[in-house]
Structure formats: C-alpha cells, structure tokens
C-alpha cells in the first residue's frame, strides 16, 4: 500500500506542469524515502530529475517500493481539477493498476473529489549520472532566470550562458539581430532571495538550444531561486531547491566542432 498526503495539491501540479512539454510518460518511483522521478526526453538532450522527500508530505506510507507509470497529460487533466489549496491524497495498492487521487477542499470540507488513473507500464531507462564538480555556479531568482530566457528566446534558437567571476551574461543571436542580458554578482543585504550569487573557479561559456532552456524555466513557480551549475563541455545542471527535495534538469550543451 502506498498513500501520500500533500497539504497543497498545487505543489504536485506545478511539478507536473513543468515537465508536460518535453516528457510524455514518466515513472514516479515511490519508496520509504519519498517520491522520485527521472525522465529523459526522446532526443536525449534534457533529463529531468525530481525528489519529494517524506517531509514534503503531511502523511506518508509506502510498504513496498513501487513505480507509478503515468501519462503526464492524463495526470494533468486530473490535477487541474483541483484548487491550489486542496489537500491531495495519492493512493495505490501494491499490485494494483490504478492511482487514486483524492482532493479535499480546505474551505469546503463537504466536498471531496476522487479520480482513478490507469497506470502504465513504462520501460524507462535509468541513467547513471557521474558525480561532478562544477567550476561555475550562478544562483539567481527563478523569476529573473525565466524572464531572461523568455526575452532572449525571441532573438535566437540558441542561448549562450557565460559565467565569469564578476558576473554572468546570457546571449542570443539570430536572423533579426542579437541580444544579451548581463547580471553582476551582488548581495542584496536583507533581500537574500533577490541576490545574484556567483561562484566561479574558472570562467565557463556554454551554448544551449533555447527551446530546452525554456523548459527548464517553467519550474520557476516551484521555488524562488534557481542555481545554474556549469563546467566546460559537460551538461549544465539546473536545480530548484524544494522545501523537502529538489527539481532539476540536466541539459546537453551545443559543442563547437
């Protein structure tokens, strides 16, 4: 028996909204440590990795580890029926073929809605991701990151992220011209959430397909800050810290030939 209760259905909804454009079917692996999910897009350019630890739930029970294979679009249909502050309970039997989602309206205890989603058998590759030291880490407000990517995507299909000791620059170049946004490292005293934190041992510049970067900034509603971890010629690790877990992407760079 698996049963997990989230006080805010919106947390799970935001997670699923963030993966809907690139990932069709995903396995949500439930164990006594919580729920985790890892999925790679068909083109093998982006990998999403998510973990919601047991502390993320107001109650959690998982007698035996199980994988819940779900179609993201179907799951969203159900999650979108909920109000943001509904309490969500997810339930599955050990050898069942359904995930039950129950929504309780915190402002109207007389209303309870219940949905059953058919589970899929998803043959998913699990990747072994090597431990990596990153030589450049930029941490910035996720809304700022989202705005930069949205603005620059209009100018080109590819965006370069250039991290140096004194700042980070995002650049796009395309048919209509070019554009860049530079952020200097700063610390807004008393406003930690707005600071631009830059830790660079060695300057790094990596280029990415802007379509995939756009996907990584859809998770902005999940966390106020995002960190971009880079090292020459390897995938960028983009991570949002959740209250009890994380939501992260690995994105393969464009490499000059």
């Amino acid at each position: 028996m698996f049963e997990a209760k989230l006080n805010e259905a919106s947390v799970f909804k935001k997670i699923v909204e963030s993966v809907k454009d690139g990932f069709k079917n995903c396995n949500f692996d439930c164990s006594e440590e919580g729920i985790s999910m890892e999925s790679m897009d068909d083109a093998h350019i982006a990998l999403v990795s998510m973990k919601l630890g047991v502390e993320a739930f107001s109650s959690y029970r998982c007698d035996r580890s199980i994988s819940l294979g779900l179609n993201i679009e179907s799951l969203l249909k159900v999650l979108r029926t909920a109000n943001n502050n509904d309490v969500l309970t997810m339930r599955a039997e050990d050898d069942g073929d359904l995930l039950t989602l129950v929504f309780e309206d915190s402002s109207n205890p007389d209303r309870i809605s219940e949905y059953n989603l058919k589970l899929l058998n998803i043959d998913q590759e699990h990747m072994s991701i090597p431990e990596q030291e990153y030589t450049a880490t930029v941490t910035l407000p996720s809304s700022e990151y989202q705005r930069i990517i949205r603005d620059l995507t209009q100018l080109g299909d590819s965006i370069t992220i250039d991290a140096a000791k004194d700042g980070v620059r995002f650049t796009a170049e395309g048919d209509i011209g070019s554009g860049s946004v530079s952020l200097k490292a700063n610390t807004n005293v008393g406003e930690d959430e707005k600071s631009i934190d830059i830790a660079v041992e060695e300057p790094v510049a990596l280029g990415f397909n802007s379509k995939y970067l756009t996907q990584t900034c859809k998770a902005a509603p999940l966390a106020p800050r995002v960190s971009l971890n880079m090292c020459k010629r390897i995938p960028i690790f983009i991570s949002y810290k959740l209250q009890a877990g994380h939501f992260s992407f690995f994105l393969a760079p464009q490499i000059s030939e």
Partner: peptide, 14 residues
C-alpha cells in the same frame, strides 16, 4: 559552427 551534444555522451544507461 556548433553541434548539439547528447546526454548519452555523458551519462550511461544503468
């Protein structure tokens, strides 16, 4: 000219 790399160049399947 740059080319798109694949995650499979960096990660291995388990």
């Amino acid at each position: 000219k740059s080319a798109q790399s694949s995650l499979l160049n960096f990660f291995s399947k388990t």
